[in-house]
Amino acid sequence: MLSFISWFVPSLPTWLTPDTNLLECILQGLVGACGISILCNLLRVHLIIEAQSIADSKDAFKDKSSPNGGLTGRIQFWILTVILAFVGSRVAALVVLEFALRAVSSRLTAVPDPLSDSLLQMLVQCQFSLGCAFNCSLNFLHQGAPHGWLSILIAAGLSWFLASQCSKLCHHVMAMYPIHSTQRYCGVCIGLLTTGSSILPFVCSVLILTFSVAGFAAISSINQYFLSTAEALRFWTPLTICYTLLTVYMHEDQDQQSGGQALFNTVMVRLGGLLVLMLTLGSWVDVLHTLVCFIGEAACLLPAQDLLNVRLRFIKKPNKTKKQKLF
């Protein structure tokens, strides 16, 4: 059926041809966009519960924007689907490895301060990298499978279901949690009232597992392009040095700045470094995919500014917060 459809579609240049089957690329992009949606909705639910426990219900929800829904949310979702479907496996693997290195470095050098918003900034920054992680993992797990598109289709259906449920939960909590948490007659809000503090540790645990699998898949995917160990060393040596220097620089820069400005500066620095690296060692396809990553990062970070604004608003009230071990 796919060959019959492709007969009507004009042939694309080689540098625009995706790495795998077009249907598989679209389904992988859909899974990645669903993963980003789930992460954002769970973070919003966590912040709503935290804000409600710190402030009065009127103050907690006075300035918060609605969750990513409606026309804007749908446009963002499908933009991310197309971008993640278009980004090649090699650039997606490099994005995953860069974020994994940055996350490990941040974890090793982090100050154990439960009131710090560095963890939330890291979770907001990982949105596009999370989509690339799903892309790498699915491409690695189904590579060479005779009916891989069917497995990815099942994964896309499950991801769509989970994303829709998390979106409904976020809308319900946004609208009804201030009332239901005090009157205690809604099972969902009562459950969140008692177990809501475990949302963020659960999200962190799932992300650690996801990026661990994606990191292994990314290394394996990149090594497929090399015919010898010498070629691999010529690629990995400057890549490791570049990423290490970028990680050190971004840690120093984030200590001086905070909020959305620091996030956008970090994106420009690390994707700019990746672009220079691809201009030096990669192909024109990799350069094009790296430029597309700028759009993907912007599509993730711009709608997520409310997450940082809400957190920064309540971080100045430390007396009523409960210390949690997030990792």
Rank of each mutant, 00 (worst) to 15 (best):
L120K: 08
F226N: 03
V276L: 09
L192H: 04
V213K: 09
W149P: 00
A103F: 12
T194M: 08
L130P: 03
Q257M: 01
F294E: 02
N21E: 14
L23G: 07
Q121G: 15
V285N: 12
L115D: 03
W78D: 01
M250S: 07
G144Q: 03
S164T: 10
T20W: 07
W78I: 06
Q324M: 11
R234I: 03
Q125T: 06
V248M: 01
G260D: 13
L227C: 04
L39R: 12
L193A: 14
K323Q: 13
L158E: 03
G215Y: 06
S258M: 01
L291S: 03
N309C: 11
V206I: 14
A85G: 00
T182Q: 11
F77Q: 10
C166R: 04
R74H: 11
A232F: 00
E98D: 06
G196W: 11
V287T: 01
T229D: 10
L16C: 10
M268G: 07
R90N: 11
H180E: 09
C34I: 02
V9H: 00
W236N: 02
S116Y: 02
Q28L: 09
L209V: 12
F4N: 05
L141V: 14
L27R: 08
L115Y: 05
K168T: 06
A218G: 05
L271I: 04
I152Q: 06
G273D: 04
T247Q: 08
G282V: 00
T244N: 00
I295D: 01
L275M: 04
A304W: 06
A230T: 03
S164G: 13
I222G: 01
K322N: 13
S6N: 15
Q183T: 06
L275V: 03
L47Y: 07
H289P: 08
N139K: 14
I79N: 12
S129A: 10
F128C: 02
I75W: 09
N41A: 11
F211L: 05
D56E: 12
I79T: 15
L277E: 04
A156G: 02
V91K: 03
L39V: 09
C300S: 01
T81G: 04
R270D: 08
G148P: 02
H289K: 11
F235Q: 02
Q165C: 07
L169K: 00
G157Y: 06
V267W: 00
S181M: 08
L2D: 10
V31H: 08
R102K: 12
F294A: 04
V96E: 04
S89G: 13
S164E: 12
S116L: 03
G88C: 08
W7K: 15
F235D: 04
A163P: 05
S198F: 09
L39A: 10
